[in-house]
Design a protein around this nucleic acid. Structure first.
Length: 599
RNA sequence: GCGCCCGUAGCUCAAUGGAUAGAGCAACGGAUUUCUAAUCCGUUGGUUGCAGGUUCGAGUCCUGCCGGGCGUGCCA
C-alpha cells in the first residue's frame, strides 16, 4: 500500500465515530509543499472545526488523540491554524523501499476494481501526410493507455482513422485529372500527397478568387480556370465513393493500404501501437440505422431538410444527416459508440481530441445519453491547439506545414550532435560506436519530442518550437535518461549485478538527508500515477519524474556510492540507485519513452 | 450576439480551496585532476489582467469588467 493510502486508512479509522461521512475529509491529506511542514499533512481540522463548533487546533489535537500512526509516522505536530504535519518514520521508509526492491511493480499496487477503458486517439486522415498537429493526440493517448494498463485496468486503444471523408474525394479528383503515372508507380503515397495538396491549393485559390482577390501565381490561375468549381467536383467524387461507384471504390481500395503503410511507419518509429484501427469506413453500413433509431425514438427530427438532434437550451443542433442524404461525423461517432458498447462494454470511452471539438463532443455525449448509454463515462480528453511561431493555429490546409517525419528527423539529428559531443568529451575518451550513437540519438530525440508535449498541462495551447521541443536540459526526457544512464554507469563501473543485489538481502539504510529524500520520492510513484489517471493528465507523471531525477542528482552529488564508508552502506546506496533507475525506466515507459544504458 | 477556454517572473510553463505562488530557460556568481558537468549549489526576478464577493483560508470558486483564443446548422 502506498504511504498516502495507508495514511488515509489510518485517518479514516480515527474519524469514524468522530464525524459523519468521514471519507470526504480524506482528500485533505496530501503531500506537504515544504519539507519543514513534514512529508505529508492533514488539513481537515479547519473545516471540521467550523462544522463541530470547536477551535481548529483543538480539533487537530482530538484527531491526533484518536489516531494510531504506529509504524508509519513520528509524533504528528499541529502547526499554524490547525495543520497536522506528518513525518514518515525512518523504519517505515526502510520497510517500504525494501518491499519495492523485491517487487517487480516497484511498490505500485494494481487497482482493486479494474475498469475497461476505450481510448480513442491519434485518428489521422490517412489521405494526408501526418504533421506536427497529430503528435499531441498520439502521445497523450498512448501514455494514458500505458498508464491505465500498468495500474491494472483494461485499456483498448482504437485508432479511429479518417479513411472515408472528403479528402478521398479530393484525391480521387486529383488522380483522375493530374496523375503523374511514373511517380505513382514509384511512390504512390508521395504522389497521392502531391495530388491532395494540388487540389487543396486550387480550392484555396478559387475561394480567394470568389472573395475578389486575384491569384498571383499564373500557373495556379490557369489550373484554377481549367478546373472550375473543383470543390463541388471533389465532393461529387466523395459522394460517388459513398454510393458504391465501382471505379471510385476500386481506387479507394487501391489507395488505402499504401496510406496505412505510411502512417504505420510513423507509429513504428514513435513506438505507438493500437489494438484496433476501426476507421470511419468500418461504420459505413451502420450509419443509416443510427439515424433511423434516433428518429424512431423521437430524439432526432427533420429540420430544413436535414435530420437533427436538438438539445434543451441549445440553439445549434447536431446534424446527423445532411439535406443531400449524406451522413456526418456525428453519425459515425454515434455508430462508433454503439459498436464499442456492444463489443467491449467499457466503463469509459476517452476521446483524446483537440479542444476545438468541444461542442461536438458535448452534443455527441448528450445524444448518446438519450440513446440510453448512461452508465458509461464519455470523456473528451481535450488538449490545446498546436500553434505556430506566430501564435496562430497550424494550418492543415495549406499543405506546407511541418511534416511529422521531418520533425522527427530534425529532433534525432539535433540529439545526435549532442550525443556525439558528450561522448567525445568523456574523460577517458569516446566509449560509444558510431552505430550505437545513432541508436541513442533516435531514442533521445524522439523522447525529447514526446516529453515536450506530455510535460505541459494538456489543456493549454501548445506553441510549436524546435528549440523548446528539442532542448536537452532542464525538465526534459533527456535529463531523466541521463540520470538513468548514470545509475547504470555506477553498476558497470563497480562491476555489480543489479538483479543479484536485489536478491542478496542487502539492507537499506537512510541516514543522509539526500538518501531519505530520494527514498520518499521513489515511494511516491504510485501517487503520481493516480494523479495522472484521475484527470487524464500525463504532465502529473512528468512532474513527478522530474522531481525524482532532481532528488537523484542531489543524492548523486552528496552520497558517493562506490566510495561509501562501508560495504553495507555501498550496497544500500546501490539499491537506492537501482530503485531510482527502475522507477525512471518504468515512468518513462508509461510515457512511451525509452532509456539507454549509456549516453 | 451566444457558448467554451485562457490571462501567473523577461520568456516557456507548474501549482487536486491550504501555510512564505514554484520550476525550466535566460542573466549573474560559485563547485570539477567526474561513481558521466547532458550535473550540482546559490543570487536576481511576482499587487497571479482589473474590481467586487463567498470562505477559517482564493492563482484556484461566484459576479462584473478589460484583453486574447476557439467554437457557433449541412467539413472532420
Amino acid at each position: 500500500m502506498s504511504i498516502l493510502a495507508e495514511l488515509k486508512s489510518r485517518f479514516l479509522a480515527a474519524l469514524v465515530g468522530y464525524v459523519e461521512e468521514p471519507e470526504q475529509y480524506l482528500d485533505l491529506i496530501r503531500r506537504s509543499q515544504d519539507p519543514k511542514f513534514g512529508d505529508y499533512q492533514a488539513n481537515m481540522a479547519m473545516p471540521l472545526a467550523k462544522k463541530l463548533g470547536k477551535k481548529p487546533r483543538d480539533v487537530a489535537a482530538e484527531i491526533i488523540a484518536r489516531l494510531d500512526l504506529a509504524g508509519i509516522c513520528e509524533t504528528p505536530e499541529i502547526a499554524g491554524p490547525g495543520f497536522v504535519n506528518l513525518r514518515i518514520s525512518a523504519e517505515k521508509l526502510v520497510a517500504l523501499t525494501t518491499e519495492a526492491v523485491a517487487d517487480s511493480r516497484i511498490g505500485v499496487a494494481s487497482v482493486a476494481t479494474p475498469k475497461t477503458y476505450v481510448v480513442d486517439y491519434s485518428a489521422p486522415n490517412v489521405a494526408k501526410p501526418m504533421h506536427v498537429g497529430h503528435i499531441r493526440s498520439t502521445v497523450i493517448g498512448d501514455a494514458l493507455c500505458r498508464t491505465l494498463r500498468f495500474l491494472g485496468h483494461r485499456a483498448i486503444s482504437d485508432n479511429h482513422i479518417g479513411d472515408w471523408g472528403t479528402q478521398f474525394g479530393m484525391i480521387l479528383y486529383g488522380y483522375k485529372n493530374f496523375l503523374d503515372e511514373k511517380a505513382y508507380r514509384e511512390n504512390p503515397v508521395l504522389e497521392l500527397a502531391r495530388l491532395y495538396k494540388l487540389v487543396r491549393k486550387i480550392m484555396d485559390a478559387q475561394d480567394q478568387a470568389a472573395k475578389g482577390e486575384s491569384i498571383a501565381d499564373a500557373e495556379l490561375a490557369a489550373l484554377s480556370a481549367a478546373h472550375p468549381a473543383i470543390n463541388t467536383a471533389a465532393q461529387l467524387e466523395t459522394a460517388k465513393l459513398h454510393a458504391g461507384d465501382a471505379e471510385n471504390r476500386r481506387l479507394w481500395e487501391e489507395f488505402l493500404p499504401a496510406c496505412q503503410d505510411e502512417i504505420s511507419r510513423v507509429y513504428k518509429r514513435l513506438n505507438v501501437t493500437f489494438d484496433y484501427t476501426l476507421g470511419e469506413s468500418f461504420y459505413e453500413d451502420r450509419l443509416a440505422s443510427v439515424v433511423e433509431e434516433l428518429e424512431k425514438k423521437g430524439i432526432a427530427r427533420e429540420s430544413d431538410g436535414a435530420v437533427c438532434v436538438f438539445f434543451e437550451g441549445e440553439e445549434t443542433p447536431m446534424i446527423v444527416r445532411k439535406q443531400d442524404g449524406a451522413f456526418l461525423y456525428a453519425t459515425t461517432d454515434l455508430a462508433t459508440i454503439r459498436y464499442r458498447m456492444d463489443e467491449w462494454k467499457p466503463d469509459a470511452i476517452l476521446y483524446v481530441v483537440d479542444h476545438r471539438q468541444g461542442l461536438h463532443f458535448k452534443h455527441l455525449f448528450a445524444a448518446a445519453k438519450l440513446l440510453g448509454y448512461e452508465n458509461v463515462e464519455l470523456q473528451h480528453v481535450s488538449f490545446g491547439t498546436v500553434l505556430g511561431d506566430d501564435n496562430r493555429p497550424f494550418k492543415t490546409r495549406s499543405g506546407d506545414t511541418v511534416g511529422l517525419e521531418s520533425l522527427l528527423d530534425e529532433a534525432v539529428r539535433r540529439a545526435g550532435e549532442i550525443v556525439s559531443a558528450n561522448d567525445d568529451a568523456k574523460p577517458n575518451g569516446p566509449e560509444i560506436s558510431a552505430e550505437r550513437r545513432n541508436e541513442i540519438a533516435e531514442i533521445v530525440g524522439i523522447g525529447a519530442l514526446k516529453y515536450a508535449d506530455l510535460s505541459q498541462n494538456r489543456t493549454s495551447d501548445y506553441v510549436f518550437s524546435y528549440d523548446k521541443m528539442l532542448a536537452m536540459n532542464g525538465n526534459t526526457a533527456t535529463y531523466m535518461q541521463y540520470a538513468y544512464a548514470r545509475v547504470r554507469s555506477i553498476f558497470a563501473r563497480g562491476g555489480f549485478d543489479a538483479e543479484a543485489l536485489r536478491l542478496s538481502g542487502a539492507k537499506i539504510t537512510l541516514e543522509a538527508p539526500a538518501e531519505r529524500a530520494l527514498a520518499l520520492e521513489i515511494l511516491r510513484f504510485s501517487e503520481a500515477l493516480d494523479l495522472t489517471v484521475v484527470d487524464y493528465r500525463p504532465n502529473q507523471l512528468t512532474a513527478y519524474l522530474f522531481d525524482l531525477a532532481n532528488r537523484y542528482s542531489t543524492f548523486f552529488e552528496n552520497c558517493h556510492v562506490l566510495r561509501a564508508e562501508s560495504d553495507e552502506l555501498r550496497n544500500s546506496r546501490l539499491l537506492l540507485c537501482d530503485l531510482t533507475a527502475r522507477t525512471i525506466q518504468k515512468g518513462l515507459e508509461l510515457l512511451g519513452i525509452n532509456v539507454v544504458e549509456k549516453m
